[in-house]
Design a binder for these strands. Structure first.
Lengths: 291, 291
DNA sequence: TGCCAGACTGTAGAAAATCTACTGGATACG
DNA sequence: CGTATCCAGTAGATTTTCTACAGTCTGGCA
């Protein structure tokens, strides 16, 4: 078997034989394979030559299989069917699309819209992977990512801007009850400030010093704290839109600061686009960007 | 299915994947396939690219199959096994060798030596086809032929002289009982002459006229008539050697006439010689030629 | 009968796929 | 740390494959 693996006939010639045997006509087989009649005839001739026997009888009008050809065709067809089925299964596998996002994007942007995604693309099984950083599309079997990045992008990546980091200062309405909004800088500094690992307060307040206040390693945690009335958090507008609309948070100043880098939808360019990935990509591009 | 036949991945890439998956090492797979490591890696990369998913995890030291790779490998291996088995069956088929000869050669030369052939090559199953003319090696699935022909031969044919047409006049000893051998031309003309379709008597006797006597459409029939004492036949020495040695026939004159064309062993040149055919060819070349 | 259409064969040159030969990066092992 | 052994990636060479076209053969048709 190992032996015969090495002496397998040219596979493309086998494919030509299989098609020709099914159609009993080189021209039809050629059409099916997308080549010319001569190419198929040549391949089959080479195969017969290598095997040292005729697979077809050449009739004046078409082909007929020899006894050898008939039995060989049955086996070869079976093998190609196996390959076709296996490949089909591989490609038609449950349309799982894996999206890799930061924890904050997951909590604040993606998860709230999952129901909508499911309604729009019911056949797609989305796997959400929340990690701080994406190491490798292939290794992690990730189809699409949302990442904080900036151009230029490597040629093998496709990237589309989702939203910029438009920072707004927000707090629970309970925290600022009795104060007039927007707050002045003076008033703001008196409130507890909540920090995430990006520490954008210094940018917004143009402060050189380290500002006091609780620190969280994920923006989403700082936001949770803000929702709980524990302070004012500076967050990307995209992450708080829903909470603002629902009145769970309020903007405490009118200032905004847009800083880089930006949130991009990213994927690897592939020569064989998967429909499900395309669909999720398109959905993300429209629904995850700010209106 | 017809659909997926068209979208089958590149077959050579599948073969590279199969070997790599078995060995879990591109270099080993490359060696098995007789190419370089780069070639295999390239093929596998192209396959993964087309399928749009990773089949292998590239580890620092070798490869590991992904989940997709594992299940795909099983199916692809199965398909290649099918092909290998089918091809093996086709090539290891009972070693039938077909030899096409004229009826006379069959009766007088080949069949008397079949036992010897079987003793020399017991694993070979010889199929003897006796026909007046050979139309087509391929069409008739003929491996070797013995034919009356003359050079030059087409480049795709291999030919080897077996024996020339050395005509001798023979008769049953009963027919010439009482006569002194060799006969004179005079005496010869008084005996019944047996004719086959070649009608060589006119050559030997330098006769312009049509000579009288029974006519047979095969030399072998004329010889049978001679054996039965019905006349004198002019036949190729090669066809009567055994009967002469056994005393069933005697030469009635000492004259011989060698005429063209000659008997040649002929076969089609093939890029994939079959051992059994080679063996029969060699046997014929030595055993069927005159000593 | 003569001729055309449609089938395959065979071949030379063009086009494409594949391979080789490297360079380079990563990791395990002593 | 240096060495050996993986795999990745690339450019150019090589080989394979395809196309285009000329030939041959045969059946059907006027």
């Amino acid at each position: 078997m190992t032996q015969s693996r090495r002496t397998l006939p040219p596979l493309n010639a086998l494919r030509a034989f299989e098609a020709s045997g099914r159609r009993l006509n080189f021209r039809a087989a050629a059409e099916e394979l997308g080549v010319t009649q001569g190419a198929v005839a040549q391949q089959v001739r080479a195969l017969e030559d290598q095997l040292g026997l005729r697979l077809f009888l050449r009739l004046s009008r078409g082909l007929a299989l020899t006894a050898y050809g008939t039995s060989y065709l049955a086996d070869v067809s079976r093998a190609f069917d196996t390959l076709a089925e296996a490949t089909g299964r591989l490609l038609d596998r449950p349309e799982t699309v894996t999206i890799s996002v930061t924890p904050t994007v997951a909590t604040k942007v993606l998860i709230p819209r999952l129901a909508e995604l499911y309604a729009a693309l019911p056949d797609i099984d989305l796997r959400t992977v929340a990690t701080e950083a994406l190491s490798d599309f292939d290794r992690d079997q990730v189809d699409i990512a949302v990442r904080l990045t900036r151009p230029p992008f490597p040629a093998n990546l496709q990237a589309q801007l989702l939203f910029r980091q438009e920072l707004v200062a927000v707090a629970s309405p309970h925290l600022v009850k009795g104060l007039t909004l927007p707050l002045t800088g003076e008033e703001l500094r008196k409130l507890p400030l909540l920090h995430d690992s990006h520490d954008h307060w210094r940018v917004l307040l143009q402060s050189r010093e380290k500002l006091p206040g609780a620190t969280f390693n994920h923006t989403t945690l700082a936001l949770d704290a803000a929702l709980a009335g524990q302070g004012v958090v500076l967050a990307c507008r995209a992450f708080v839109t829903a909470d603002l609309e629902a009145g769970r948070l309020v903007r405490v100043t009118e200032e905004t600061a847009t800083i880089g880098p930006d949130y991009f939808l990213v994927r690897k360019r592939s020569s064989s686009p998967r429909k499900a990935v395309d669909a999720v990509w398109d959905w993300c591009a429209t629904r995850l960007s700010l209106p």
